[in-house]
Amino acid sequence: MPQNPLFQNIGKNRAKKVRDKYINLTHGSGGKAMRDLINDVFVSTFDNPLLNSLEDQATVNFASLIQHGNKLAFTTDSYVVDPLFFPGSDIGELAINGTVNDLAVSGAKPLYLTCSVILEEGLPVETLRRVVKSMQTAATKAGVQIVTGDTKVVHRGAADKLFINTAGIGVIPDGVNISSKNIQPGDVVIINGELGNHGAAILIARGELALESNIESDCQPLNDLIANILNVCPHINAMRDATRGGLATVLNEFAISANVGIRIHEAAIPVQEKVKGVCEILGLDPLYLANEGKLVLIVKREYADEVLSVMKSHPAGKNSCVIGEVIDVPAEIVLLNAGFGAERILDMLVGEQLPRIC
C-alpha cells in the first residue's frame, strides 16, 4: 500500500535548531524541546558513533578496552567554577581536562567520558553552545570521546548558570602500579611547572578585587605527558594532580598514606612573580592555590634524571623540576625548607581559601 505523502517525512529530521535564546524549563522536560537541545547543542558537537545512537547508555566493546591493559580506571567529578569563562580556559575545558587528568595520574589511558549538565533557567543558549564546543575541543586534544550524558534544567535562582559533571573511564597498562602506598624514603618529588596560576586567575577574573593581571589558568590535559613518562619509567611510585588544596595538600596526603615524611625546598619551587604578587597582596600562599595542569610525581632517585628529561621535552612539562625528597621522620609530616637552616611544617589546607575554584 503506498505511503500517504502526509507522513513521508515524519520521523526524518525531527530535531530542529534551538531557536530560543535562553534556556527554559521545557528544555529539561523530556519532550521535543529537550530533544532538540540535546541534538542541536550536544550531539552535533560531540558527534561520535557511541553517542549518536542516543541510547540511555554508551555500550563499549570489551575488546576495545583490553587492548590497552588489564585494569579499568573509573572516576567522576563535578564543576561549579565561577566565572564560567576565565583567562586561559573555561568550565567546559576544565571539566574535560580535570577528569582526563584524574584518570591519567593512575597511569590509565583515558578513553571515554560522560557529560551531565545542570542548567539554570535563563542561561543564554549561546553560552551553552560555547561551553560545549570548548568541551569537544578539549576532548579532541586529549584523545577521548564524550559518549553519553544527561541534561537537567532548574528554576531561575536554584543554581548558578551552569554546573557540569563528567565521569570517565580509562585502562591501566600491564605492569603499571601507581599508588601513594609505594612511596619510600629516598624518593624524590618532581612537579611539572609553576604553581598557583589557576587559583590566581579565577580570583582576579571574579572582579571582586581592584586587581588587574594577565595571569592565565594552567588548565591542560596531562595524559600525553604521563604516557611519555611511563614509556621510559613504568615504575613511578605515586602521581597526583594538584587541584583544590594545591601542592601542600597533595604532599600531606602522600605523607599520611605512606607513613613517611616529605621535605621540600622553597627555593626550588617555581611560582610566577605575578602570582607571588597577588598572593602577597591578599595574604595567600601559592602552595595552597589550586592548579588545573600541574602534576606531582614521586619516583625513586635512580630514575629521577631520566624522568625529568622526558618531562622537560614535553610542552606540558618544560618547566619541570625536583623540589624535594621523601624522608623517614617525622612521619606523616611535610616540611618546607626555607633556607638558612629554617624549616616549618607545611600542613594540609584548613578551611576554604577560595571557593568554587573548579
Rank of each mutant, 00 (worst) to 15 (best):
R35W: 00
G324M: 07
Q8V: 09
A205D: 13
V307H: 06
C219E: 10
L354M: 15
A73S: 15
K274L: 03
A238Q: 08
R130S: 14
S116D: 01
R244E: 15
F86P: 14
V326I: 14
M135Y: 02
V144N: 09
N214W: 07
K12N: 13
G157H: 12
S257F: 07
N319G: 10
A139C: 07
N259W: 00
A138F: 00
A139V: 01
E121P: 09
Q57H: 12
V171H: 07
N214I: 05
K109W: 02
C115G: 00
A258F: 04
P124I: 05
R344D: 04
N228W: 01
A316E: 14
A258N: 06
Q353D: 09
E273H: 14
S106C: 10
K152N: 02
I178H: 09
G196R: 13
F86G: 06
L103R: 10
T140F: 03
K181Q: 15
K16L: 10
I202P: 15
T59A: 08
R35K: 11
N237F: 09
Q57S: 13
K109M: 02
P173K: 13
A268K: 15
H235T: 14
L203W: 05
G339L: 10
V250Q: 12
F85A: 08
S309H: 13
L103K: 07
P234M: 07
L222C: 08
A331Y: 08
E273C: 03
D224R: 11
N48A: 02
V171A: 03
G143P: 02
I169A: 04
E212I: 03
N252I: 03
S313I: 04
